[in-house]
Design a protein around this nucleic acid. Structure first.
Lengths: 151, 151
DNA sequence: CCTATTTCAGTGTTACTGAGATCG
DNA sequence: CCGATCTCAGTATCACTGAAATAG
């Protein structure tokens, strides 16, 4: 018996956690492909965005703001620094810390990635009207806020 | 400078792909914790649900219906078979295939996991009203359907 | 003494790839 | 010969953990 087309799996196909997972897999594929084509990797965009928005910061603060684990911040900054998109300098006021600064090259890079990432959003949300897109973002933002508070 | 509370990262915090990713991470944590507590692993629930809904099937069909890669179907069925939740028998009509059947134990298991999984949905969607939950499911289902068609 | 930061090495989950053996 | 199935081995991404060295 061959499956001409996948019939719906009733029990699971309207399961919120499963729909979220499927959507995330597709979304991740699109973002990853677009960033890879632009020569960037996962966390670079969020780190550069956090640096531009808040200015120079320690790695720990950067990680908290961008939602990236301390360990992964180190690796991503190594790559960004190798490409001269950020600079790491010791903090004279607290010698445990590095102060991370975005360079002019990094700012240009961020602008480039901004267009890449926003193109992906359009692709991802293609079937939704602008009003529906807002609704989806609001609903997801409420979930994220709720779970951020209750850790 | 310490971050009392994480201020919003404007550029990223309303980015649909990022919200979806965050939601998926939380969702995955909840589902994984609940299934682990019940002694189950990732794909088991979807495979059992597909088996109960459609009856005995080959592994390839099961994978297509449950959205699980052929390779991961093998591993998950090994575990389900070890626990006597499914049985694998060669298909006499097509000797490349195994016919996978859910056992009475497996059906009981599925009912148990149903309550576990639906408890997680409530936790995940806690901040949303029933109407909002429906809206979210509809929006996500539309995205999933669209991207399933355009592969 | 305890906490925070940076760093390294490594784990675990999920999705996926490639290849071999078998069979239609 | 081509295509499908089952299986195994292994990769890659991301989130995360544990521990060491350093410093407040």
């Amino acid at each position: 018996m061959n499956l001409a087309d996948s019939e719906p799996l009733d029990r699971v196909d309207r399961l919120p956690s499963w729909l979220i997972n499927l959507t995330a897999v597709h979304s991740h594929r699109l973002v990853f492909a677009a960033l890879t084509a632009a020569g960037a990797h996962g966390h670079h965009y969020r780190l550069l965005a956090a640096l531009e928005q808040y200015g120079p910061a320690s790695q720990a603060d950067l990680g908290r703001r961008a939602g990236i684990d301390r360990s992964d911040v180190v690796a991503a900054l190594n790559e960004l620094a190798a490409d001269h998109h950020v600079e790491r300098t010791p903090d004279p006021a607290d010698r445990r810390r590095n102060i991370v600064t975005i360079t002019p090259d990094g700012a240009r890079r961020l602008r480039r990635l901004d267009t890449v990432v926003s193109g992906v959003q359009d692709e991802l949300l293609a079937p939704l009207s602008p009003a529906d897109r807002d609704r989806l973002v609001d609903l997801l933002a409420r979930l994220v806020r709720h779970h951020a508070k209750t850790d």
